[in-house]
Amino acid sequence: MSYRIPISSETFRGLKAELYAICKVSNQLVQGPAGGTPSFREVYTDTGTRQIKFTLENDSVVLEPGILSYSHGRLQFEVMQQDPSRKAGFLKRAVQSAGTGESAFGTRVTGTGEVWTEPTRQHFIFATLEGGDSMLVDDKAYYAAQGTVKLSTHTHRNFQGAASGNGLVQPRLDGTGLFVIESPVSVHEIEVLDIRAGESVVIDGDMMLMYTASMNPTLSALGGGVRSGVRSGEGLVYTLTGPGQVFLTPTHISAGSLA
């Protein structure tokens, strides 16, 4: 048997996000006192699989295409299209809308009810944007956001950015509301850097999960010049200047998380 066990949640206005661990359940024989009757107890084993439930109360949530498992309630669904002037397909599970040839930007769910996403072995971060906040997110990390959060794309307009392998286009989140980020590591492994005004940080893009949009990154080769970057083994890197916050996954390596 398998059970879903709630492990974390966050609520903002009419939207609640809950993260569940899917556990296998088995019965274990427990020997009682001498002459007594043995009994059984349930043992829960974490499978490492996670699932998210969104509960809406006259609110909305925009899901990455392809993650919906099932829903129930008084809900309406709308497939949003990417701005045709932008580069399509930054969502890793983007799908082609039937008959249009355009890439789906997201699925907006509106109303009152419950929405469950597909089980996955990835990790998740729940966070809330306050008024006036903006975040740039790794192009593989966006998962869902409250309908009050504006989802758009940010384009790095330099040659090095296009060639870095970390994506010319990144999702951008603006406004107020709850959002969910998919992470290769657990929330306990994420490091948050607070960068002061005038200070900067140089980061391998593969370890950067998200950062405040005010930081306006520069993408370039470490040590100057593309050839130099390739020889160093580092390739192209981000340089971000404060003030702002950067969320890193320093334990994420090619073989996966160290956890």
Rank of each mutant, 00 (worst) to 15 (best):
E118A: 12
I52P: 00
P65W: 12
G111K: 12
L129K: 11
T100I: 05
P65Q: 06
I52R: 01
F126H: 13
Y70F: 14
A104C: 06
G147Y: 06
A98W: 08
G111F: 09
N158R: 11
E57C: 04
V149S: 07
A98D: 06
G66I: 13
H123P: 00
L151Q: 03
K140A: 10
L63A: 04
P119V: 10
L68P: 07
G113H: 10
F124W: 06
V95Y: 01
G73A: 09
G73F: 12
H72A: 12
T128S: 08
V62E: 00
G99K: 05
S85F: 11
F77I: 10
Q82E: 08
D139Q: 09
I67P: 10
R74W: 05
V61W: 03
V115K: 02
A104N: 13
S152I: 08
M135K: 11
G131A: 12
F105S: 14
E57T: 14
V61R: 07
T155F: 13
T110Y: 09
T153S: 13
G111S: 05
A88D: 03
E57I: 08
H123E: 09
Q146H: 12
G111N: 08
D133K: 12
Y143E: 08
V61G: 02
E78A: 11
D139P: 05
S152P: 09
F105G: 04
Y143S: 04
S134P: 07
N158I: 03
G111H: 11
N58G: 08
D83H: 11
A141N: 12
G106L: 10
Y142K: 02
A144E: 03
S152W: 07
R86I: 05
V109F: 05
K150H: 10
G73H: 11
G131I: 02
G147K: 06
R157N: 14
D138N: 15
S152V: 09
D139G: 00
D59L: 01
G132N: 07
P84D: 00
A127Q: 12
Y70L: 09
S71L: 10
A127W: 04
K92A: 07
Q81C: 01
I52L: 13
F54A: 00
T110A: 07
E118P: 02
D138K: 15
E118N: 13
F105Q: 14
T117N: 05
F90D: 04
M80T: 01
R121F: 10
A127F: 05
P65R: 08
R157C: 03
T117V: 13
F90Y: 15
L63D: 01
S85P: 04
T100V: 06
A141Q: 06
T128C: 04
D59K: 00
E114A: 07
E64S: 09
N158K: 03
E102D: 13
D133T: 06
G101V: 05
A141F: 04
L56S: 00
Q76H: 14
F126D: 00
G131E: 12
T110K: 15
Q122A: 14
G99Y: 06
R108N: 02
A127Y: 08
H156A: 01
G113K: 09
L68G: 02
K53N: 09
V61I: 13
T128I: 15
Q82D: 11
T117C: 12
Y70C: 02
S60P: 04
